[in-house]
């Protein structure tokens, strides 16, 4: 089949879009340039304005609402607040939580015998925290979940426990403010 050349005349709006995108590129270059020159000037006058954090020596302070990896709240008596109701396991979109409940003689008769979170699958969505009726699983500030093996990314109950005081002025504060509203 013989090819046929068709002259296309683009509508005005499309041509205007091309001009706008060219302008956007220039704008982006301008921002990069501005930071470059500002930083260079900062180095010259010995007042650097760089935003790079020298991790791991330096760390950012995260806002209270920050969602890092989920952790289990540890009560003052050293036990977990979790009663193994399984709602987080059910709510988890990536199925990264595994719970096996068991019974104790305590007043709270049920506890998780096994509480595992596969951190390599967790996506920090916070649905487990939202599903929890006991305020027992909350998101923490921690995002450091690297390990040398897959097995190392599987966090068990003892690894996940965090004393309640440590969470009170961060994520728990935010969660409770949300419920109060």
């Amino acid at each position: 089949m013989a090819t046929q050349t068709v002259a296309v005349r683009r509508p005005l709006a499309m041509r205007a879009g091309f001009i706008r995108s060219a302008f956007a590129i220039l704008k982006g270059l301008w921002i990069t340039n501005r930071h470059f020159w500002r930083n260079l000037w900062g180095f010259i006058i010995r007042k650097p304005t760089v935003f790079t954090v020298q991790f791991p020596e330096e760390r950012l302070v995260q806002p209270n609402a920050f969602r890092g990896m989920p952790v289990l709240v540890q009560m003052d008596n050293g036990k977990e607040r979790c009663v193994a109701c399984g709602l987080c396991e059910w709510a988890c979109p990536t199925d990264c939580i595994t719970i096996y409940p068991a019974e104790t003689a305590d007043e709270i008769e049920r506890y998780p015998r096994v509480f595992d979170i596969d951190m390599s699958r967790c996506m920090f969505c916070g649905l487990c925290e939202e599903a929890c009726p006991e305020e027992a699983i909350v998101m923490s500030q921690n995002v450091e979940i690297c390990a040398y093996s897959r097995r190392g990314t599987l966090w068990h109950k003892d690894d996940l426990l965090v004393p309640v005081d440590k969470l009170l002025d961060t994520r728990l504060f935010h969660v409770r403010r949300g419920y109060d509203r």
Binding site: C85, W90, Y100, A102
Partner: peptide, 9 residues
Amino acid sequence: FHHKLRVWF
């Protein structure tokens, strides 16, 4: 079956 598993699983 006491405290074994949530039934919805």
